[in-house]
């Protein structure tokens, strides 16, 4: 999509802690932000009045018409961060395949689902379960969780 004014546009689905934080950050960087949530109460998480008043869309982001209301046709970035893995990955695929958004990313809590979408179905996803477990494990042991899972034995020792 042509950007007459050169402003980058980001569409975020899910106004939870992560979605709201991303919205605030992109907004402060000068991006055009649109944030979607099924529950309009969720928009209270937005601190910036301008975001709350002018850049929210209430509706289900797995419905293409709701995404259109959130101006997805002009979005350069689409981020799906509701609490539902399936909703996120479905909306991400709508954004990618139907609206041809350049950069699409979604959150998938289930590591196995994340792996299949990332490795076999070409969906850019992040898995907070893996990242969180790894952060906790490596904080305690000094080595990443992948190292111990990979060769079947503990490499670090628990710090007491």
């Amino acid at each position: 999509m042509a950007k007459p004014n050169g402003v980058q546009s980001v569409c975020i689905m899910g106004c939870g802690r992560v979605g709201a934080m991303l919205a605030e950050h992109f907004h402060s960087m000068g991006y055009a932000v649109h944030i979607i949530d099924v529950n309009s109460d969720a928009f209270r998480r937005l601190n910036t009045k301008d975001l709350r008043d002018n850049h929210t869309t209430q509706g289900d982001g797995t419905d293409p018409s709701v995404l259109e209301r959130a101006d997805i046709t002009h979005a350069d970035i689409f981020i799906a961060v509701t609490n539902g893995d399936n909703r996120n990955v479905m909306a991400a695929q709508i954004a990618k395949h139907q609206f041809n958004v350049a950069q699409v990313i979604c959150r998938i809590y289930d590591p196995k689902r994340h792996e299949i979408y990332r490795d076999k179905l070409g969906i850019n996803s992040i898995c907070p379960t893996l990242i969180g477990a790894d952060a906790i494990f490596s904080t305690l042991t000094g080595s990443p969780i992948g190292a111990s899972l990979g060769n079947g034995k503990q490499q670090g020792e628990l710090l007491s």
Binding site: T62, G84, N86, R87, V89, M90, Q93, R113
Partner: peptide
């Protein structure tokens, strides 16, 4: 009854 579950 949920499209997203059926798709996934």
């Amino acid at each position: 009854g949920e499209d997203e579950d059926n798709l996934v």
